[in-house]
Simulated scan of single mutants.
Amino acid sequence: MKVSAEHNARIAKMTFSSVYPHYVTKIEKKGRTKQELHLVIKWLTGFNEIEIQQHIKDKLSFETFFNKASINPNAHLIKGVICGYRIEEIDNILTQQVRYLDKLVDELAKGRKMEKILREEN
C-alpha cells in the first residue's frame, strides 16, 4: 500500500498531544502502565519524562516532535504492518517514524515482553 503525499502531510501536522491519550488508553486497557509507555517513547526518541510531558503541553506536531528526537539506531529493526502499511516500505521518514511509535505501542498493548519491544540483543 503506497502512502500518499496527503497522508504524509496530515501525519506531519497531527499533534503528539492529540494521539498520546489514545496510546495511554490502549495500553492501560491491556494492563500495561504509562511508565512502560514512556519507556518505549524514550527508547525510540531519546526524550526523558520531563521532555515527554513538555512536548504534550506544547502541543508539538509530529513533524516538530520527531525533528527534536534522537531516533534510536535500532529503530530500523521495527518491522511489520501497522494501520495497513508495511513499516519498512514507507518511504517518507517522518511517516515511518510515527508508524514506528504506533507499532511499539501496539506491541506493548499486545503484551509483548519489554526486551523484545526495545529490540534488545541477548
Rank of each mutant, 00 (worst) to 15 (best):
E88G: 06
Y100P: 03
L39F: 02
G80L: 13
E28K: 08
Q97T: 12
P73F: 13
A9M: 05
T95M: 11
T25P: 02
K34I: 07
H38N: 15
I87V: 09
F47M: 14
S18Q: 01
S17Y: 03
P21Q: 03
Q97N: 15
I71V: 15
L94E: 12
L108S: 03
N92F: 06
V19C: 03
I90R: 14
R10N: 01
Y23S: 08
N48C: 01
S17L: 04
K30L: 04
L104K: 12
F65M: 10
I82M: 09
E121Y: 09
K42H: 10
E121A: 11
E115M: 13
I56C: 07
E115I: 14
S18V: 08
L94H: 15
N48Q: 01
M1N: 08
S4V: 02
L101G: 12
K29Y: 15
M14F: 00
R86I: 14
R99W: 13
K110N: 15
D91P: 08
L77D: 07
K42T: 12
E28P: 06
G31H: 10
I78W: 11
R86C: 07
L44K: 03
Q35T: 13
L118Y: 09
I117W: 02
Y23G: 04
D102Q: 03
M14G: 05
D91F: 08
E28H: 06
Y100S: 12
H76I: 14
Y23D: 10
K29I: 04
L44Q: 02
A12R: 09
D58M: 11
M1C: 09
K2D: 12
P21L: 04
F16N: 00
F47V: 15
V19Q: 14
Q96C: 05
T33D: 00
I117K: 08
V19G: 02
A9R: 05
N74G: 08
H55T: 01
E49Q: 06
N67S: 13
E120L: 15
T25I: 00
L37G: 04
L39E: 14
V24M: 12
N92K: 14
K79I: 12
F66I: 07
I56N: 06
I93Q: 15
M14A: 09
F47D: 13
M14H: 02
F66L: 13
H7M: 03
V19E: 08
K29D: 11
K113C: 01
T45W: 05
Q35R: 11
I50A: 10
K42F: 09
H22A: 01
T95R: 12
G31T: 00
P73Y: 01
Y100V: 03
Q35L: 14
N8T: 01
K30E: 14
K79E: 11
V40D: 01
K26A: 06
K13Y: 07
I56S: 04
V40N: 03
N72G: 11
I117M: 12
L104Q: 07
